[in-house]
Design a protein around this nucleic acid. Sequence first.
DNA 1: ATGGCAGGTTATACCTGA
Length: 262
Amino acid sequence: MRVVTWNINSVRLRAPSVRRLADEIAPDILCLQETKVVDELFPHDDLADLFPYRHVRGMKAYNGVAILSRVPFEETGGRDWCGRADARHVSVTFDGGVELHDFYVPAGGDEPNPDSNDKFAHKLQFLDEMAAWWRDRSGPRAKRILVGDLNIAPLENDVWSHKQLLNVVSHTPIEVDRLAQVQASHGWVDAARHFVPDSEKLYSWWSYRARDWRATNRGRRLDHIWVTPPLQKCLKSASVYADARDWPKASDHAPVVVDIEL
DNA sequence: ATGGCAGGTTATACCTGA
């Protein structure tokens, strides 16, 4: 089973890129973030032949998440966080009981100070609610997968310069600590780092602002795939499909790919 | 050291991204 997560930065603009991704790497399950479209206008017709099963939750202009699948799922869910109906979470349950959750964590604005920056306060609250929710959902033997744009690059080699990004939102110690609490709250295993050692650079996002993103390579690993301990031994491979960052009208995020033997 | 880009909007400047 190939699970892919991708911040697509507008699913209507890039529906053709979903087709190309399907052609090139054939995901069984594709989780999207920043779809930026209300459910009524989601491009179902463009994608139904590739992914007959779809659970989408969007809003106008901002955020929005979607799970597209070649294999059926039984139940669908997703909840609001921080008291806002802002389309940042959907979930599905597959035959056999494997749960999949797709998140889009708030970016957090510019200034890493929750007292002066409401967006950063929102990000921290979102992470705290996630940690509390997963802590309360007992069942360490449950088979669960959590994917998404978590908007945090936790490790030193998840960014191009640890020192230069220490005070930049996405890599500040306060966020990294909060994300570690989310991870610890349910025993989540970082699937990408299960295969790529911490000593090795690994990114999933490169800014649009670089003239040549590949040459400067100032990336960050903001997109993640986590699994619960019972699925750890099922992990077969993990990678970032950076080729997609070079496609015409590319998203600034590249897809993250994990193969799991379910 | 700085600034650089992109998507969406009852747009044609401004918000958000990170």
